[in-house]
C-alpha cells in the first residue's frame, strides 16, 4: 500500500511502487484530467503539482510520492484566476493539453505573481500544444496576473 494525498484527500493504492503516478491517478483514482501525451516528460500534458511544484506525472514513480501532496487539474478551484483567464481568453481548442498547461501556469503564478514574457517562456515551454494556443496562453497568464491582456 502506498499512501499519499490527492487534492487534499488521503489516498491509498495497492500498486507496484514503480508505477508512474499518471497511471495511478488515471486508472486507480479515476482522475482522467491529467493526460498521457508522451510518457517521457516531453510534452507536459500530465503535469500535476507535488508538494507545490509542477512535475511530470508520467515519469514520476508513485513510490516517490509516498506521504506527499499531489494536486491535479481536478483539484484546482473553479474560481482560480488562471481558469477564469483561460475562459476569458478562450484558450482551449482540442483541450487535451490544457489541464497540463493550467497546472504549469498556476505553479508559475504562485512562484512569480507578475511573470515577464521570458518567465512565461521558461515555465511554459515544457508544455506542448498541437493546436497552437500559445499566444492565448500567454495572454491568459498575463491577465490572471492582473496585468491585463497584452496585445
Amino acid at each position: 500500500m502506498i499512501t499519499f494525498f490527492v487534492n487534499g484527500k488521503e489516498r491509498q493504492v495497492d500498486v507496484s511502487p514503480d508505477t508512474p503516478l499518471l497511471w495511478v491517478l488515471r486508472e486507480k483514482l479515476g482522475l482522467t484530467g491529467s493526460k498521457y501525451g508522451c510518457g517521457e516528460g516531453l510534452c507536459g500534458a500530465c503535469t500535476v503539482h507535488i508538494d507545490g511544484t509542477p512535475q511530470r506525472s508520467c515519469i514520476t514513480l508513485v513510490g516517490d510520492v509516498k506521504g506527499k501532496k499531489v494536486v491535479t487539474i481536478e483539484g484546482i478551484s473553479e474560481n482560480d484566476p488562471v481558469k477564469k483567464a483561460w475562459l476569458a481568453q478562450e484558450v482551449s481548442q482540442c483541450g487535451y493539453c490544457q489541464p497540463g498547461q493550467i497546472m504549469s501556469a498556476v505553479a508559475l503564478l504562485k512562484k512569480k505573481p507578475q511573470p515577464t514574457d521570458s518567465d512565461i517562456d521558461a515555465a511554459m515551454s515544457g508544455n506542448l500544444c498541437r493546436c497552437g494556443t500559445y499566444g492565448r496562453i500567454r495572454r491568459a497568464i498575463h491577465s490572471a496576473a492582473g496585468k491585463g491582456a497584452t496585445p
Binding site: I76, E78, K83, L87, E90, Q98
Partner: peptide
C-alpha cells in the same frame, strides 16, 4: 461567443477516447 465546450476542457471533465473506461475494462 464563448465556446460551449471550454469549461469541460479546463477542469478535466471532458472525456477523450483515452479517458473512456468501464468496470472490468482491460488495456
Amino acid at each position: 461567443l464563448h465556446r460551449l465546450d471550454s469549461p469541460a476542457k479546463i477542469n478535466g471533465t471532458a472525456i477523450f477516447g483515452i479517458d473512456v473506461t468501464v468496470p472490468g475494462m482491460l488495456t
